[in-house]
Design a binder for these strands. Sequence first.
DNA 1: CGCGCGGTTGACAATGATCAAAAAAGGTGG
DNA 2: CCACCTTTTTTGATCATTGTCAACCGCGCG
Lengths: 278, 278
Amino acid sequence: MYKPENANPQRFTSYVAPPQRDDAAQVELLQTLRAAEARGSATPCPPLVVRVNEGAAVHFEGARAESVHVVRSGAFKCVRVLEDGYEQVVSFAERGEVMGYDGLYRGEHVTTAIALEESTAYALPTRELDTLPVRWPELDRALRCAVSRELVDAGRTANMIAAVASETRLARFLVWYAERAAERGESPRRLRLRMGRREIASFLGMAHATVSRSFTLLADHGVLAVDNRDVEILDPVALIGCSRGTRRGVDERAQHPVALAMRPAAPALLRQWPLMAA
Amino acid sequence: MYKPENANPQRFTSYVAPPQRDDAAQVELLQTLRAAEARGSATPCPPLVVRVNEGAAVHFEGARAESVHVVRSGAFKCVRVLEDGYEQVVSFAERGEVMGYDGLYRGEHVTTAIALEESTAYALPTRELDTLPVRWPELDRALRCAVSRELVDAGRTANMIAAVASETRLARFLVWYAERAAERGESPRRLRLRMGRREIASFLGMAHATVSRSFTLLADHGVLAVDNRDVEILDPVALIGCSRGTRRGVDERAQHPVALAMRPAAPALLRQWPLMAA
DNA sequence: CGCGCGGTTGACAATGATCAAAAAAGGTGG
DNA sequence: CCACCTTTTTTGATCATTGTCAACCGCGCG
């Protein structure tokens, strides 16, 4: 999915506040990583908090992996710039998600983590990761869990990209995004996308024009109400149906993919989806 | 990428040897996880070793995540079965790679790990993961590193699937596969694919017919010698060129993608590729 | 020997990438 | 507040790529 139009890699001229030790952020960090029991016991290592504004990066592809980051507020995209300058979005991260853990393997970050808006992140020095379990067992456990979640998301990402139809890809993306919103306690129906069409396109492995088209297609069928980056899910059942991407039967050949997806999805799937509870 | 032809999920009738504690496997496990310094210090937790033959699974999607697995020998595929029965291959794992770590997040495995041939794996009980750092620091560190590697691979996977041209996808897959072979000390030029065309297709998000076509295409151009699952890389430079998937310029429109990829790749990229050393 | 399976190849329709341009949104300065 | 610029998004038109269907081949196995 190379698009030469995208050939100007972002220049990181934006302001990056120098990281500072922040005692008050201790409990926060643990809570952010959604460890249920965040005991405020004293730890010898108050976390670093980094503040960046839109377009700035907390770590760079190829740079020594000195820390792993946890999103505290805002949103990030993790990208790799390919040889021809195309910016491949590998993942999106919001509150509670880990970025840069993949840098531990070789000691170099393999992605650049760029803020999509004014954001903050915790920085966990990789040096201190070895001793973390003894110094702060709860955090260690929470971090493990968060990394596991990254792997889950990676699998889902593959699942999104691998889908045949472009509407299916977008539908899966939206379902995923809505679930994440629900997990953060936000509305799973009224979504505010933190990223542009081009970034969604790069993430899903398609042309940005096709992303746009898929949005309008779903909107035309009454599944979504799209207002730029504000997306409202009008018909969750249809969206899920579309995300399931069932192949058309031979006899249904003439019909439209989206129309076909309108038939109700499996009840089991629906029940476990937060959208349906709302 | 749904293919109804693939709608018969594997029946797991194959033999699975009951796991057994194996004292002798202690050092092995550490070495397998490629920790440089594997001290043979006594640990209170001799690893479990599981033996499976082709088609059998070490863990199932949806089952309680009681252990994380590390491949000791052989090869595995990690799959998710979608609602319509299509088997999506999420990852391939060979010696030293971690499977099922994504199960920690929810306590349930999200993939089924199926052996592609007669294989063995270590099972690390998730219960013991909390105390692992104190009981066996080296292993903990090695495991962290291996998990990090999984994340790196996940990013590369996305990179493979997201590529536009089918030959590019396959080329990236082969480059990745060759690098892994090299890391395991095997030849990076003579590859034995452990998986079938259909599994490659599912992994790369394309139709199996297209995978087959891409193989023959690369073979016709002298890049590969393909004999079923035995693939020899005849022209590494061309393969890398193809994997870089540079878009054709406007004037080169008439030429064939593979032919265009024949031009030499960036020296920096080549130097760091194990193929070129051989 | 026939059967089934995995792989290859052919033909065809259609999806989506690409090129291109218009329209909308956001930001800046008068 | 409006004109003006840039960026993002939408929409249009065209054509190659690839998914789909289907036939065929080679191989191992019962």
